[in-house]
Design a protein around this nucleic acid. Structure first.
Lengths: 336, 336
DNA sequence: ATGAAAGCGCTAACAG
DNA sequence: CTGTTAGCGCTTTCAT
């Protein structure tokens, strides 16, 4: 029975087993052969004392903390937990843990989070923040810490980039609606296309162009990234002289607002009006009718991030920077 | 400019500033006076080298890692990120970081997570897992690590307990509906009341009893904890000879199923049928009509947990174990 | 107001 | 196959 409130050290184990600390160390991490008899004595001592190797001490010695830092705006935003889980899918089995810091999008907090990560000797950093100057990442890069940036498009030496294919996703969504026979599609976008939303507009227009369809400026409305915004934007489209029979929204929350608009006008969805969202949030399956949407591949992004970090840490990857684009996936729910 | 790939140590700083490591240490954490002149030289050196104290090394010396472990089933379940954020609200400002482990509800993973936490020298553990034997927590307790259990009702020496007031919340919800003039209330519950759901049934019945209303067994239906379950359960209630005009569901997802049932039967909500949920998930505001519900105080629970951990770590709290019950909050959205 | 030295728990040369 | 020794970066007596 381990004694209360006291952590046994490798030395205590060695003492009890009648061997040196070195031998205990090697039985534990197999860096050199240990005789079966000795191994058993060591293992017994460990068992008896309830010994667990001190990861911090090991890290001090080996200069590897087996920890990676994840810096995000807000774990409460449902996108990030999934991302975090994706990172852990890959890094967890390799013995890494992650520490997460929320910045609420404040630059000062982002910066201090990075310094904290350095102070904690993280082996790698996953940085999921949109608006950051390249300068802010200088310190970790100079320290030789691998940094992966999640989202955004800024290519920067020393920083690997992973993001979803918003452009391709929107292009696919638009193509899907066109294939369903809707030749005029409304697009409900944010105030001014920023971040991923900009790429989504681009993708939408790209498909129209590729299919030889002239872009109608009146079919693209700018509004808020919210349920109310989606409602207002859709109503504007429905009030057009020749309203579209299908609307594509920049995200699911706006699409839910579009459903409100349809209900308000007594339109059947998708009979009278087809509505598509983007992201595949949980609520997409909880509204009626359920939303057809492009699944934002948060988990895959996290996994890709984890793999890159692992490759950097093992030396399997050495280039100055890479870019990984994870495809969005069409999720059909409205049988239009 | 800091040199690439090399972390300066306290010794390097001391050297550059022309003082001893001791003095650098003390300028940093103010454990003894340092002359203004010296302080400036040290700070300059730190700035120049881009030095950050190694938290791991400090922890090795002080036997405090400034880290707490959070063990949960799945960060992807929207309840837990909010909980985690609550914990950080309190612990973050005190200089603690948290490492999170997902167990997917598997006992073996829960156990190994606990051992990992010990190996990482966490200063405290927040354990949010329903079905765990008291035995599993023995090791951390024996090591003298404060453990807070989140959810569940098991009172155990050495383990502080924090959970939401599911019973009181359901009692309040029932009272609210009665106050609205609904004298017969249907309750849609899970297969067999387990976990928090059991307390919610208890609370519901308690209010009925308190108001002198006889319990009608037929008004309590058992079904699945899902949207489909909520739909089926509500239909069963609506098919009763004297159907209730109000239904209270054990969670929001089921309540959304209840909305489906109303729509299917052409009933206006809340005009013909009032529907209440429990938890206040994001989707509660995204369905139509929005759900009146009892907000599960995840963030408050996390904060309470953080405060307890902090008190235990500072020695401000010393009893063998405590129980904290965080009230659920009524969120009115259907103006019935 | 400042330094020297020891030691936290561990791993990795370097012996044998 | 096993042990001795040094040292990772830091804090903390004990001196001065």
């Amino acid at each position: 029975m381990p004694s209360r409130g006291h952590r046994p050290s490798i030395g205590r184990v060695a003492e009890l087993a009648g061997v040196s600390a070195t031998t205990v160390s090697h039985t534990l991490n197999g860096h050199r052969p240990v005789s079966a008899a000795t191994r058993k004595r060591v293992l017994d001592a460990i068992e008896q004392l309830g010994y667990r190797p001190n990861v911090l001490a090991r890290g001090l010695r080996t200069a590897r903390s087996q920890t990676i830092g994840l810096i995000i705006p807000d774990i409460t935003n449902p996108f990030y937990p999934v991302l975090a889980r994706g990172v852990q899918d890959v890094l967890g089995p390799a013995g890494y843990h992650e520490i997460i810091t929320n910045t609420d999008g404040m630059r000062e907090l982002e910066r201090s989070a990075l310094e904290q990560m350095i102070a904690r000797q993280v082996d790698g950093i996953a940085f999921a923040v949109f608006h950051t100057h390249a300068d802010d990442l200088r310190h970790p890069i100079d320290m030789g810490i691998p940094v992966v940036r999640l989202g955004g498009r800024l290519v920067q030496p020393g920083v690997d980039l992973v993001h979803s294919d918003d452009e391709g996703g929107a292009a696919e969504a638009t193509g899907y609606l066109l294939d369903q026979g809707y030749d005029r599609i409304g697009f409900v976008c944010g105030p001014q296309a920023e971040g991923p939303a900009a790429e989504r507009v681009t993708g939408h227009l790209a498909t129209l162009a590729r299919r030889g369809l002239p872009p109608e400026p009146s079919l693209i409305v700018h509004t808020q990234f919210s349920r109310a915004g989606g409602l207002a934007g859709t109503l504007r489209l429905l009030d057009l002289p020749r309203p579209p029979r299908a609307v594509l929204c920049a995200n699911d929350v706006m699409a839910i607002g579009a459903l409100d608009a349809a209900r308000q006008r007594g339109l059947d969805v998708p009979g009278d009006l087809a509505i598509m969202g983007f992201d595949d949030i949980e609520a997409a399956t909880l509204v009626s009718p359920q939303l057809t949407t492009m699944a934002n591949p948060a988990r895959r992004i996290g996994q890709a991030c984890g793999r890159i970090l692992l490759d950097r840490l093992s030396g399997a990857m050495t280039g100055p920077s890479s870019e990984t684009i994870v495809p969005a996936r069409l999720v059909r729910r409205q049988s239009a």
